[in-house]
Design a protein around this nucleic acid. Structure first.
Lengths: 201, 201
DNA sequence: GTCTATAGGGGGATAGAC
DNA sequence: GTCTATCCCCCTATAGAC
């Protein structure tokens, strides 16, 4: 976890220009896919030449990596501690699901990219990101198992139920549109309710 | 629907070689992504030259289209009629979910590609495929609404619940491995149960 | 039905000036 | 920090022989 403070050699100084370029690339990656966007297109959107991007980033993959890290690190570092907070197992799970869906709504460029373009990373970076995802998943599975022991949940296979829940709550990542019928807060409410009901007798 | 009998000019004769090449390309697309596989790589895997592929297919996209059609047409034409069969609303829904998951297990190359590479198709082909998906989705939403009327289901928003269910039962597409811990039939059983429970009071 | 050869373009990335 | 110029590779697709 602390490895993330400086996971790569180049200094992660609070560079506004850099963050700006990452956000810009993230939007293009979401719209056209990582392999569908060239360095020339990213540069053009930023109003500079392709070669200038290499002053800010080692290579194209670094742009993708930074986009994906934002999402997956956030989920483990900021959302997951909800399960260690106060309340019953049901309440804590509902709170996590709610926060998870809101996070998708607030970061949908990066989420879409993280969901689709993982394999475009190098094997080592794929491993790192998958480590985060496994951490998130395992913590939830443990929460379900503990909820079963506490008599709050009914669930034959907590690991499988975790996969089912994660696939469900990650779903809005693919179909949520800010201008659509459903406001993200309402989706978050409904999903928290559906998940808890799924785990009740 | 009948448009699919001959949706493109070149005759869809029962060509074994053609089907073989589609299956081969589908596997590569799954492993490396559509844009990550070149015509040279597909040809090499088939033991021929890249130019020879253009005797069988107009272009690269046709290879992708054929892979995706198999999945999405099957679901509407072969699986969806389950909802018109005998049984209670709960039984029919459970049967559909079960069949859906088994279909993923039996066609996981094509499913993975259909799930990830839709946007690589031309806009017209995207529309056609999305038409199938909307048909599938709307029919399920109607089933849920009818189940509510019949007093079998509890559900505040059938359309949203349909999205939640579909995201959940499409999930194994991303993580199911034939050699993994869970046999596909067991996943299908569990998911049918989870879905029905989610819709019960 | 498969081949060789090639057209024509776009890809990521680098060198070195300013 | 951005530029111009350029390298080298791979891409899809076509022409035409066999």
């Amino acid at each position: 976890m602390t490895a993330l403070q400086r996971e790569e050699d180049p200094p992660r100084r609070g560079n506004a220009r850099r963050a700006e370029l990452v956000a810009l690339a993230g939007r293009l990656f979401r719209e056209r896919g990582y392999h569908g966007v060239g360095m020339r297109a990213i540069a053009e959107a930023a109003g500079i030449q392709a070669a200038s991007l290499y002053h800010h980033f080692r290579n194209k993959e670094e742009l993708l990596l930074e986009t994906i890290y934002v999402v997956d690190r956030d989920m483990v570092v900021e959302q997951l501690p909800i399960l260690d907070g106060p309340g019953t197992h049901r309440e804590r799970l509902a709170r996590l699901v709610h926060a998870h869906v809101l996070h998708i709504g607030a970061n949908h460029d990066a989420w879409r990219v993280a969901g689709r373009e993982l394999r475009a990373l190098s094997p080592e970076h794929v491993d790192t990101v998958q480590g985060y995802r496994r951490g998130y998943q395992h913590r939830i599975a443990r929460h379900l198992a503990e909820g079963v022991s506490a008599g709050e949940f009914v669930c034959a296979d907590p690991r499988l139920a975790t996969l089912a829940i994660l696939d469900m709550i990650n779903g809005p990542n693919e179909w949520y549109r800010p201008e659509g019928r459903l406001e993200i807060g309402r989706i978050a409410d409904s999903y928290a309710e559906l998940v808890v009901r799924q785990l009740s007798a």
